[in-house]
Amino acid sequence: MKTTGTLAAGAFNDLAEAEAPSAPQGTAAARKSRHPAPCTRNKVLGERAFFLISWLVPITVVAAWEFLSRLGYIAPQILSAPSVVARTTWELAQDGDLFIHLGASLLRALAGFILGSALGFSLGVLVGFSRLAEAVLDRSLQMVRAIPFLALLPLVIIWFGVDEGGRIFLVTLAVVFPIYINTMLGIRQVDPKLLEVAKVTGLSVWGKISRIILPGAMPSILTGVRYALGTACMALVIAELIAADKGIGFLVMDAREFLKTDVIVLTLIIYAAFGALGDSLARWLERRLLAWHPNYAKGKR
């Protein structure tokens, strides 16, 4: 693709794998379940056994952690015992604080994600369809993209203060580029042979866009969504850690002050849950929008 060729190679490399709109493939996790390891036909251990083993390992680790904490090998100010984390979670949930912070963070993430993907998608469609739009926008967008977005933090603080706007802006920024690039490349890489079919079947311009170009670009767009969910999560953590009066980040900062490692562990779990939530969102989209692809199909329609 011409456009990517003009990028600073270094800036693109680390993202290249995640953003490359290759043939539709999920993440390693998504693929794993459809493509079993080559020698898993084990006669002694059934599917259930493998399932149990896969849970046994983390359960053992947590049990060992609890055990060592109780024996005093792990000091509470280094890492709280799982039981303590559970109790703290219960207490925070009881007085409702947990949900206020959770809600604040989710809202930020959602607002930033929706803004960023709407903007990224629109720009991607515009540049994907129009050489003029590419000439006007693409180089500048790529230049801004080359800035590691953490480096923008000082400016963002000056512009927005430590306001909610700044935090949403950071998440938006983290989402715009992966969606933009993958939408644009997805559109550009639609097979010209299929567009010839549009011509000989007399498909209208809108038909061409809605039946061929956008669905053809969809695997690539969803790759962008998946990647953006990751960067959004990262941006959220950073944005919340600068300064926040509520949100999961606030819980972290507050807990750090008082060495409350139980709360810190809880927030880690919450951020992980955010990640998992994003992953299931991506999966849901893939199953709905890529039902035609054997990798995602849940039976014929």
Binding site: K193, A198, G207, R211, P215
Partner: peptide, 21 residues
């Protein structure tokens, strides 16, 4: 026209491919 390759849209069910346009 029928080309050497089928040139079907993988994302459209068969009837939509046939009824294209």
């Amino acid at each position: 026209v029928v080309f050497q390759e089928h040139r079907l849209m993988a994302w459209l069910p068969l009837w939509e491919n046939v009824a294209l346009g």
